[in-house]
Design a protein around this nucleic acid. Structure first.
Lengths: 196, 196
DNA sequence: TGCGCAATGGGCAATTTTGCACATTGCGCA
DNA sequence: TGCGCAATGTGCAAAATTGCCCATTGCGCA
């Protein structure tokens, strides 16, 4: 089940993740502007120079987690069987996605939200989301084939992502009564009326 | 209070310690002969090749902890003020030594003892102890100056180390009613009648 | 008894991390 | 307003780690 990646790659991934989490933790604690690269490097157990080998700046390190999730979601959609309808593929992908959303992930989401008070961060986050929307639309367009008119995948991707964001927000804000999958299902049922 | 050692050296020390502890743990669990270098390296999170960069073989890795303690004790004796009598210096050094012996260290000592069932390990341990006795005798001889006849430091070192070993054994075997320092004091009081 | 094989030790090159130097930037305070 | 200074980004060489290699060793099993 696990890919036979070597020790080298596993260590790099672990370090990258550690740097990201250190950045997130320190940012939540002290605010983005009051966190130095050196402090992050210390917290992650690496040198300041090595930080630069992994990320070009603090923002990249902070947004890395979300970008990972984005990449995983897009890839998951691409990996759905070709015979699934686009909306079904999207729902299946996000369901698989939600499986990995346990309490620690919820904690991560909450903290990420807390860290995003900084304007430049919000800007980058918006850009990421726009890119995600574009990539998802591409994946959808590729899936349905050239039969669908150009605007259709864009609309579907936008609707889908809006649903996901709403569901995430609700899941974060309500107590842990339901898992993220249940919330996703409810919102996507509501939105999906027009796509199924 | 802490030395301003660089990140590099701190990481090397941490890795060396991790390898040692992995070796100790696996040896206690499976027996020295049933532990491969590869298993130790995996447990310590390094490659087999890197293991070789730290230790030439499993025995070195297993005995590293004890050898560290030995070196620390000898150095501690050397660092005692020159005006202290030899026996006083030895007692002071071992008292300082015992300060760092908390429950985790006790656990370490117990496990080390468990791991030492292997003949080749016992042989090396004996050799280490002999070397320790020699080094301590040298330190004592250096301290008292050339006034003392040659056999005297040897006797003192031997008596001292015998006391320490007895105290360690008692401390390990009795429940955790007393700290190691108290046991040391009792045994060394008994032995020291002839040296103070 | 001799083969097969896993474990080991170590050479070597590629890759990564570190430490250090230096230029640039942005901000607070004189 | 301009200086001082901390933070940052980056080039570079030294050091550390990894992966791959092969020769040697010792042990179990045919």
């Amino acid at each position: 089940m696990e890919s036979p990646v070597g020790l080298r790659e596993r260590k790099k991934a672990a370090t990258r993740q550690a740097v990201h989490e250190a950045t997130l933790r320190l940012t939540v604690e002290h605010g983005f502007d009051h966190v130095t690269v050196e402090a992050v490097a210390d917290a992650a157990g690496i040198s300041r120079r090595t930080f630069s080998n992994y990320f070009t700046n603090k923002e990249d390190a902070l947004l890395y987690g979300e970008e990972q999730h984005i990449r995983a979601l897009v890839q998951s959609v691409r990996d759905r069987p070709a015979e699934e309808s686009s909306w079904t593929a999207l729902r299946a992908a996000v369901a698989q996605f939600a499986e990995h959303m346990s309490p620690p992930e919820r904690e991560w989401a909450v903290r990420t939200r807390l860290a995003m008070r900084h304007p430049s961060l919000l800007a980058r986050q918006l850009a990421n989301h726009a890119a995600l929307e574009r990539d998802l639309a591409d994946a959808v367009a590729l899936r349905t084939g050239p039969s669908d008119a150009p605007p259709r995948p864009l609309v579907m991707a936008a609707a889908f992502l809006a649903s996901v964001r709403i569901a995430m927000r609700i899941w974060i804000e309500e107590d842990e009564s339901r898992g993220p999958g249940a919330v996703m299902d409810e919102i996507l049922d509501e939105m999906g009326q027009r796509f199924t």
